[in-house]
Write a protein that binds this DNA or RNA. Structure first.
Lengths: 196, 196
DNA sequence: GGAGTGACAGATATTGAAATCTGTCATCGG
DNA sequence: CCGATGACAGATTTCAATATCTGTCACTCC
């Protein structure tokens, strides 16, 4: 049996995700994680100093997946304005799918997010940088006007303006009728604001 | 003593606010409200069918105050683009002041908001109508371009784009360094989007 | 007659004792 | 040696008994 594999941080993170998925954020314990792995909970503490650190690492992994999923839209071909709309639409679709497909998992995720604001801040900076990259491309292509201050500030404004459509805090609104239209209207507003 | 005043819905609402302020949303009971008024809790039920209805009425009253406070910025003189910035700034300032001045009261308010989404939806429609009014003025004045669909849709997009700066769900972010700049950047984005 | 009452049943919240969990560390065994 | 263990102290959570609250209604008293 492969159960005698060495205990790695990676395997612990996978088990932790599994436990969080199964029991939710309130009931998931380090002892549960150890049980899933067939080791004592002391072993888990050899890789993660605290339960909080373990949860933080899971959160980071989780958020990283979004970054990776969106990366293609940054570097893809085609005009930057279209790429921006695609990027924003992809982000919304991703979040919406997660929220709609498994509301409990989304709730779990939201709790983790609330616990790890520093990680979330760094994650948001990554996303802002992706937007900034597209906006800068758009400026070079002559599609977007020069930013009022700098690309990152403009990108952050775009990120904030679309907050309602990617921030998990608003997940409950994403199944309301008319969200599609509301999203399109905001994206359209953003496009008009950037247009040269 | 004036304590023998007749029991009105108004007096009950005031007492309820007082109780919510003092005990918070989890511990505030109808019995507490009755005690403050010096009546039996049965009397309170004569004016409000349920505890939920009582809380809903408080929420409505609370939200109504924002509508009233912002009304001046809608009808004021001056160019519509400036009025829009002033309206958005006033809304942000109002919410921020409440959140910063008494975080516990804000938390209480947030719980009530969560319980009464229908009331909140109606409230948001009122705010959107105020924005729509200003945007329509701006179009008449030649400052804003014709809306892509209609004034209400554009207004709603403006409301959603600035969500992060008025939605109590984000209250925690309003004391972070750089919020002012972030707010200004989003308002500036919105202005650029509307400009003729 | 109609605003106000208070006893009541069922639902919800509080409390404190018992169970479980977190994080440490001396010790084990390969 | 060095990763893994499990007993342990203190912190946190669970659970069930107890208390309080919600909503109703027959009644009172002005």
């Amino acid at each position: 049996m492969a159960a005698t594999e060495t205990l790695t941080a990676e395997r612990i993170l996978e088990a932790t995700e599994e436990v969080l998925r199964r029991y939710g954020p309130a009931k998931a314990t380090v002892v549960d994680v150890a049980r899933v792995l067939g080791v004592s909970h002391g072993s888990v503490y050899r890789h993660f100093r605290t339960k909080a650190a373990l949860r933080e690492a899971v959160t980071e992994r989780w958020l990283e997946r979004t970054i990776v999923a969106l990366r293609p839209y940054v570097g893809a071909g085609g005009p930057a304005d279209e790429r921006l709309t695609e990027w924003l639409t992809a982000l919304f679709a991703l979040k919406r799918k997660k929220a709609g497909g498994d509301p409990e998992l989304m709730a779990t995720f939201q709790v983790l997010i609330g616990e790890n604001s520093a990680v979330v801040d760094r994650h948001e900076e990554h996303l802002v940088e992706q937007i900034a990259h597209i906006v800068e491309d758009g400026h070079r292509e002559g599609l977007f006007a020069a930013p009022e201050r700098d690309f990152t500030t403009t990108a952050r404004a775009v990120f904030h303006a679309t907050d309602r459509f990617h921030n998990p805090a608003h997940a409950a609104d994403w199944s309301a009728p008319g969200v599609e239209e509301a999203f399109t209207a905001v994206v359209s507003l953003v496009q008009r604001a950037l247009r040269a």
